[in-house]
Design a protein around this nucleic acid. Structure first.
Lengths: 339, 339
DNA sequence: CTGAAAGCGCTTACAG
DNA sequence: CTGAAAGCGCTTACAG
């Protein structure tokens, strides 16, 4: 591999001039610049970023840590973040904490600790105290997406109010028998969000003087398949079923809709369903939902990182506390059929 | 930040010994090792990977380039690859070529060219000649997943035979009026796979002396939503509709099934549907499909990379030409209703 | 605008 | 088992 020395020699200038010509830092005469560029091209010169980073102290590399990448929310966050970063000439290094504990430990103890990053983004991760300590030891900017980390800049939607709003929508349509399909405890441990959504749901019911029916409080793993089973079972209960259901994710809402249909129920006439997410497939299912725009959340995290790195101006005024969401009214909700 | 010098000083040894103790390369006495580890811990020492990589020539960092990450196939490949890499103590750097051309150029001209990688994986990318030249200039191992790159180790499924097999399944059930829902030209340009699937479909029909009905050759963008529209339109055609449909992706097959149901058709009695992918939701839709295990493809790509890097032993015998797939028979296919 | 030189923080023959 | 030292390939004050 040609190094900067080879280029300098061929162009008849010093390595300092090559560095300046190629990086754009500092003044270089047009003639030198051209000579350098030509020499670099002829030699297929490729800059060593390790050397460059070591010398300059900047890596132009951002880390992102998430519990999985193969789910809708995460892959969309990643799509947004990677596009924004690549566009700015930054690399994105991906860390996945899924799998065994040993695996997660490796990420925090080794991978993230190697100073290759200018900053890091964590997505819906609840870190242990030692993990947070380790992350801080790197002394780089940190942004949390979705989860709430102590003393870390956070971008997140208002889960409580989203759930309350969706519930109020159902109540205002006339529903009083309303179920909730949230996440299992497993998810609450890591993400904390399903419980905020449940809280919002219960708050809205309480405000309307409606009792929560414990039988209609379900949980699943955010997938369509398990949601289908749970909802189908609930709807088959001969002792009564709700007329509406709030789901903590759109994919679970799809499962709920399919389950209702398979039982011969008409959605929304016999059974209303609301989701939370804004999944593309929601259109096909006619799903009423609250869109949270994960791709834009990923972009926003990158923008915030750039501001913390001083690469971009801080916005004037105070940052909004919550990332904006949007109520999307479609055909899966309607007043309950009059008995 | 504490550097290796600080650790050496505190532990009362040389930097060489610190390096050996922490990396595990070379012999170190137990006493020295303990002193070093303790000093490192007390100082919150974090290794600089840039310095380490520069000195050793190895980055322990693999690049992966894909056209998007927010689609089922890609996010699963990524999930498999990142898990395998993290487990081996490797980083994964993600490049996304979606978006504007300028963006794609940036990835190939700048990001990938910076020698930060030990190797790279491209996923279903058809590279231009200059792009391939640039990638080669880096002189690192390269593995192609899904696409076929000249003179590059490739992992891919046998698209032609998969499609032929699925088609033969329908023919053997008694279908003769069979449609195909593939990818639009846009996808063929980048990926090349939809056309291989179409070829396999046509081959199977030809073998059975069945004429291809051009009216039933549809294309979409691999999403459920557009597939729904296309299939619904085809099924509504008063001049006749097929009794079965092969879809080049499971998500499109879901759209097809929903479209048929919305028109009052029974799947599979009135209309059989086969997919290609092995999407988790297939179970819920009862979709007969051919599973291609993208997560495992991602893992296999990593294993191959490790072999090329000499980190793992090459397998004995010749590598199989194609990545294995699996026929999954469920309830979306049946003999056509007798007219 | 340009070059010589120090320095970024490691790894690794080399000699002992 | 250990240390002194060269070297990895850049960037960037500094002096001109």
């Amino acid at each position: 591999m040609a190094s900067i020395k080879d280029v300098a020699q061929r162009a008849g200038v010093s390595v300092a001039t090559v560095s300046r010509a190629l990086s754009g830092n500092g003044k270089v005469s047009v003639a030198s610049k051209q000579a350098v560029q030509q020499a670099a091209k002829e030699l297929d010169y490729v800059l060593s970023y390790n050397a460059s980073s070591l010398a300059s102290g900047r890596s132009r590399n951002i880390g992102i840590v998430m519990p999985t990448v193969s789910r809708w929310y995460y892959s969309n966050v990643l799509q947004g973040a990677t596009q924004e970063l690549n566009e700015r000439g930054y690399d994105l290094t991906l860390y996945n904490t899924s799998g065994e504990q040993r695996h997660r430990d490796a990420v925090f103890q080794d991978l993230l600790m190697r100073q290759r990053l200018d900053a890091a983004i964590t997505v819906t991760l609840k870190l242990t105290a030692p993990e947070l300590h380790q992350l801080r030891a790197v002394k780089k900017p940190l942004v949390a997406l979705g989860g709430l980390l102590p003393q870390v800049d956070t971008i997140r939607v208002d889960d409580f109010n989203i759930a309350a709003l969706a519930t109020e929508h159902l109540i205002s349509l006339g529903h009083r028998d309303i179920g909730f399909l949230g996440g299992t405890d497993e998810f609450n441990i890591d993400f904390k969000l399903p419980s905020a959504r449940l809280d919002g749901f219960e708050y809205a019911l309480d405000q309307a003087d409606i009792q929560v029916n414990q039988q209609w409080l379900l949980d699943a793993d955010f997938t369509m398949t398990l949601a289908y089973q749970k909802v189908r079972s609930m709807l088959s209960n001969p002792r009564g079923r709700p007329t509406a259901l709030l789901c903590a994710s759109d994919e679970m809402a799809f499962g709920a809709i399919v389950a209702a249909r398979d039982l011969g129920l008409n959605v929304p006439r016999d059974f209303s369903v609301v989701g939370i997410d804004g999944h593309e497939q929601g259109e096909l299912f006619g799903l009423t939902t609250i869109a949270q725009h994960p791709k834009e959340q990923g972009e926003a995290a990158v923008t915030l990182i750039m501001q913390l790195l001083g690469e971009e101006a801080m916005p004037q005024g105070k940052a909004p506390e919550f990332f904006p969401t949007e109520f999307v009214l479609r055909s899966s909700t309607a007043p309950p059929a009059t008995p």
